[in-house]
Write a protein that binds this DNA or RNA. Structure first.
Lengths: 244, 244
DNA sequence: AAACTAAACGTATTTTTTACGTTAAGTAGT
DNA sequence: ACTACTTAACGTAAAAAATACGTTTAGTTT
């Protein structure tokens, strides 16, 4: 059967968000978008690519269709290709039913993405898209190899976090140093001395202090900072990062 | 037409080797393996995956088929997916002829690999496989987007070289500190102070000195070192590498 | 005005990085 | 056998960065 989509290649997206109080979260959707509420299995946002569509465009399109999210950081991080990854049970049956196609083997290109969680309210995501944020420890068993995809996505995020300015994708434009630290700790999984962290951040020319402070908090208000991407890019070009 | 291979997905491999005198090299093969010597276009080793084969196995198989190389470091680094990447000219025609299949769009998974160049002599590669090493500055125009794949492969190598023990894949088991330095300089593209480099290496517990020296050289013979992967893995686990 | 809370600052010590010049251990040529 | 040649190997001082700790500050709440 001729389809408009390419039934051999799909895209799956691990959407990470950061909540100041609850830490790192991942966005999951229901296997069947409302059509059959009895099926409760959860999955990553993902779908087949269209036949003449670039993968990056597919990822953006699919993310928008399934969650309403657009214009965010998207990074390809791995290909999941095990010929047996779809299993031969209920999940594969569901996929064949949904597509009306005799799906055989699907190779999926996995992306992780970073969003400013506070821009996507729980209620809106849930009402309009049947999507929900899950803490990294609350993720249930998902369809196919989606748990593995999340695990590898997190591992990649942790690694790339060390050399890329990813934290700023998860924070509002204006943020405090302590927010930055909480994110770093949440992603890296260990705690950092606050005084040394501040010294470090203050040395970074691309994290610039504003003359603005928090208001309405019942303690000393924190100063706001912003990320200067231009400055970062310039400095990065000069920096070799040679370690070995 | 039913084929044993999957005509939608391929694997291409950027094989890097290091020559002590001539620097970093990449392995290219002729577009048509001897069948038609008039066609002289060069390409990366690569081919379609088989229908029930894991990508990593495909990469290993294809590399062996086209170059005889096996058991080497192979790292998936990007997916090349532009729907127009095959063009609509001679190269596409060649591909359709060779496969006897009406190829449409091919998404290719790119790997880079690192080999100890001295193990694969120029003559053997060239006679048995029609493959040849090219200096990074000598690479001619290749088919499809293979030049771009090499460029991105090199960029990835340079990046991952900073945090992974990749140099040891390119060197013989026993190597000298100066060899290590020459590789680092070749890959990173800048020069390093030899005295500081030595100090740095000597601090690495996983680069261990042997009680063996070069023989038959007309100067002070250099000491040999080996890479202790076990020690490296242990130290890596303890190391956070936190930078931000 | 006292209690509370998170923000912000500082200093001494150790470790790492950087910048540079000299000596050492072999072979080859006379 | 000694001199020239070539690459290996060592060392030190100064600057910068990392680490390990305690204390003060600026607001709100009671």
């Amino acid at each position: 059967m001729e389809t408009f989509f390419n039934p051999y290649i799909s895209v799956d997206i691990v959407v990470f968000g950061f909540d100041d109080n609850e830490g790192l979260k991942v966005l999951l959707i229901n296997r069947s978008r409302r059509d059959d509420p009895s099926l409760k299995r959860l999955k990553l946002p993902g779908n087949f690519i269209n036949k003449k569509e670039k993968l990056h465009d597919s990822a953006n399109r699919i993310l928008k269709e399934f969650t309403g999210i657009k214009n965010i950081y998207l990074k390809q991080f791995a290909v999941f290709d095990d010929p047996g990854r779809l299993g031969d049970g209920d999940d594969l049956k569901w996929l064949r039913d949904r597509t009306g196609t005799e799906i055989e083997r699907v190779v999926t290109i996995a992306y992780y993405s970073l969003v400013k969680l506070h821009q996507y309210s729980e209620t809106e995501l849930s009402k309009a898209y049947n999507a929900r944020w899950f803490g990294m420890d609350e993720v249930p068993g998902l369809i196919f190899d989606h748990n593995q995809i999340i695990d590898e996505g997190l591992a990649t995020l942790q690694k790339e976090f060390l050399t890329e300015p990813l934290c700023f994708e998860l924070l509002p434009k204006k943020f405090t140093i302590n927010q930055l630290q909480r994110i770093s700790e949440a992603i890296l999984g260990f705690s950092i001395d606050n005084r040394n962290f501040r010294k470090r951040i203050n040395r970074l020319e691309y994290v610039v202090a504003l003359n603005e402070r928090q208001t309405g908090v019942s303690h000393k208000p924190a100063r706001y900072y912003i990320f200067d991407r231009e400055k970062f890019d310039i400095l990065k070009r000069e920096h070799t990062g040679f370690i070995i």
